[in-house]
């Protein structure tokens, strides 16, 4: 196995392009090193991207934020401006693993690991986040929900990697929230996760909404039908009930060691309503 720590993005893509199937990008390593523990796992090449300038920065741009692929999640929570504008995304990122994991894990890695239960992904999808991809043929930018293709599978092509996550400014009267269900208070993989982003009209009704569901399908579900149930409402009880019902309906979870189908379908609705309330309140204060 080879370990490389290139200094430029071009070197990363060149290494990945010339490497075999068993080539991996290393940012925080909190998923990769766990996989390496497994006797059945083999890697030929690991490309550490942390030496690249800017890769560990959160940058305020004219119309949003760019979060470098090597920014540890703990740094997101320490960024006051980002936390103010995208509290739901930051909360989701800060829910991943322990303090120790927070010091290393990244939202780009969380996305590329392509686990259906990734905490930051529903929040990013709800936020309309984009992934900026660098590859041998240049750069391209796609919505984050286009990256995971199923458990452990991504749409990244050979030689490509995510260099940054782009979060647009949400505009006035907006708020977001992420909630997940875990059996303990920390350290668990989400049994269900829900991200909600809302923008209010001037009259206080919901002008636009995005709802994204985690751990209830092979990949994150952007539940547009669910979002529609609350658009135009002031999130009164019927709207919340409808939101919950549709979220349950569009979920296609499996039963596994972490939860049953019934449990996941039921709780995804409960959390959607709760997350929507938080997002609504935040939008109202915005």
């Amino acid at each position: 196995m080879r370990y490389e720590r290139p200094a430029t993005i071009e070197d990363v893509t060149a290494l990945l392009a010339s490497g075999g199937e068993k080539s991996f990008v290393l940012a925080g390593g909190t998923d990769l090193l766990v996989r390496m523990k497994n006797d059945a796992f083999e890697a030929d090449l690991i490309v550490d991207i942390k030496a690249i300038e800017g890769m560990s920065d959160v940058t305020r741009t004219a119309d949003g934020f760019e979060i470098g692929a090597a920014v540890p999640c703990a740094a997101l929570g320490e960024n006051a401006e980002l936390s103010r504008v995208w509290p739901g995304v930051v909360e989701a990122a800060n829910l991943i693993g322990s303090t120790q994991i927070q010091g290393r894990c990244t939202i780009s890695g969380n996305l590329c690991n392509a686990s259906p239960a990734a905490d930051s992904v529903p929040a990013m999808v709800a936020a309309g986040a984009l992934a900026r991809i660098a590859g041998p043929d240049g750069r391209r930018t796609v919505p984050v929900q286009d990256i995971p293709q199923g458990p452990g599978k991504t749409s990244l092509r050979k030689g490509e990697f995510i260099e940054a996550i782009v979060l647009p400014d949400p505009g006035p009267r907006s708020g977001d929230a992420y909630l997940r269900f875990i059996p303990r208070t920390e350290m668990d993989i989400a049994v269900v996760g829900v991200g909600v982003q809302l923008t209010l009209a001037e009259d206080g009704s919901i002008a636009s909404a995005r709802v994204a569901l985690g751990a209830v399908g092979p990949k994150v579900i952007e539940a547009t039908e669910a979002a529609e149930t609350i658009i135009g409402t002031r999130l009164d009880q019927p709207a919340l009930d409808a939101l919950a019902a549709v979220c349950s309906e569009v979920s296609t979870p499996i039963a596994d060691k972490r939860g049953t189908v019934d449990f996941r379908k039921q709780v995804v609705g409960v959390l959607a309503a709760r997350a929507a309330k938080i997002a609504y309140q935040r939008a109202g204060e915005d």
């Binding site: 059996p183 303990r184 208070t185 920390e186 350290m187 668990d188 993989i189 596994d256 060691k257 972490r258």
Partner: peptide, 29 residues
């Protein structure tokens, strides 16, 4: 009482041989 259990699959194999899914109480619990 609340969370710890061995989960076996139909194949008779243990599905949660680790502290991630064999959930002993953490400090915040």
């Amino acid at each position: 009482a609340l969370n710890e259990e061995y989960v076996y699959g139909e194949d008779g194999r243990l599905q949660n041989p680790g502290f991630l899914d064999y959930r002993i109480p953490v400090c915040s619990d």
